[in-house]
Design a protein around this nucleic acid. Structure first.
Lengths: 230, 230
DNA sequence: GTATAATTGTGATATTAATTACATTTTAAG
DNA sequence: CTTAAAATGTAATTAATATCACAATTATAC
């Protein structure tokens, strides 16, 4: 973790929402903002820790982890550049983080003072509406996962997850997983062993290839079938 | 469904968020707003149907239902008076409802034109922030359910649901369920038969009493234990 | 490059909960 | 009040997945 110079006005990795802010507002944002670099596997913030900031991911991939029953980890999602983390914390009543954020790759992150962010929202309703849109969009994705995780069996759930990586996270049909099988298990709520077994099945069926943690989708149609039938 | 007269300015069942709106803004809201009554079991809006409105529940209980794998229903939550439904639809890109809303009891509901609501948000950032807070709060609840549904076994999940009803929905330790066992099953993603069995077990253990669909929590401590151990 | 730690693979067994198939009870409608 | 339709109860069977116990492999650090 290493602080680096930054101006929001010139930032080339601004979020879409920020595009509705004028120069004055961007400068205000900058006041309460600090850019930081993380190496792979570092903790950005910890579940239960005191909340001070909203996080904006400029670069890299970050897993959001929440402790569940019996202290077992659950991975809520994998966030990528352009996402805000901890917008939940805009609510002044919330004192502690709801989940931990841990980098999966080397990453660049902006820390934004939450009061600063909140007053920007209050000042600029259009900005607020944009941010709200983002949050709601995420919520829809969570709904989908909520429903599918509960209604489908493991092969369906793993197929969903592979699609999720390809379409929502990495945007390609070949991608480094950046996650161990234990972590994938924590993402769909199963055991590591089951992940190992089903990944093997998918390979034997010619649906995916997997080498050195780089996954390639070979047969999208079959993958879709498994997503459907569960 | 029966239209009744209404003015937002005088409304005694206003939402907390609306309290930051001034009289002019309330009148604008009123322009795009219509109050309606529903009987138990009626459909307010349907998953996949065209979006026109944001819904505000003035009175009653409403289930939010989403079709999952194989057309099986999943109940996302039970909403009560004071909640907005379909805020997701503020995003202009969203054309269709993400879930259905069906009344569980006789209810009163306001339909708010979504463009009207959106322009209020744009005008009044404080209002937007309040609404955002509400949405984020809901999201935290969904996270909890997401994690627990996946990590816990049936007794734990049912215990969670009973607590959820007592604490979040009905606010009392004795309450009419308003749901059949089939619906409870759709809420935690299991079979009706399993619900029947576990409810019986809970009764035998003296944790709850259940008569004519009115549930009473008899032993909160034991219920808490089951929630913990899963 | 070697040692050590972390991760993955895999069979056997044990649990959990779904499914099937009816019987019974409760509710709603006429 | 009666009857049909919903909803609930319950046992037997089956299916899915967790757990346990190691072996094998791959990464990481020195």
């Amino acid at each position: 973790m290493n602080l680096i110079a930054n101006t929001c006005v010139d930032c080339s990795l601004k979020s879409g929402a920020v595009s509705v802010l004028d120069n004055n507002e961007l400068c205000a944002l900058e006041e309460g903002c600090a850019k930081t670099e993380y190496k792979k596997g570092e903790l950005i913030f910890k579940e239960g820790g005191l909340v001070q900031h909203i996080i904006y991911i400029r670069k890299g991939f970050v897993k959001l982890v929440k402790k569940g029953a019996g202290g077992k980890d659950f991975i809520l999602s994998v966030s990528k550049q352009g996402s805000y983390l901890g917008i939940q914390n805009l609510d002044e009543n919330i004192k502690t983080n709801y989940f931990s954020a841990i980098t999966l790759t080397n990453s660049e992150v902006c820390f934004i003072d939450r009061h600063c962010f909140a007053s920007l929202l209050k000042q600029n309703g259009e900005f607020a509406l944009k941010v709200l849109s983002t949050v709601l969009n995420d919520e829809m994705n969570y709904f989908d996962r909520l429903v599918k995780n509960v209604q489908q069996q493991l092969p369906g759930r793993l197929a969903n997850t592979i699609s999720y990586f390809a379409n929502e996270v990495y945007g390609e049909n070949t991608f480094a997983l950046n996650l161990t099988q234990t972590e994938i298990a924590a993402l769909i709520g199963t055991s590591r062993e089951s992940i190992s077994r089903i990944l093997k099945e998918f390979q034997e069926m010619g649906i995916i290839a997997l080498e050195h943690n780089v996954l390639t989708i070979l047969n999208e149609k079959k993958l879709e079938e498994i997503k459907q039938k569960g």
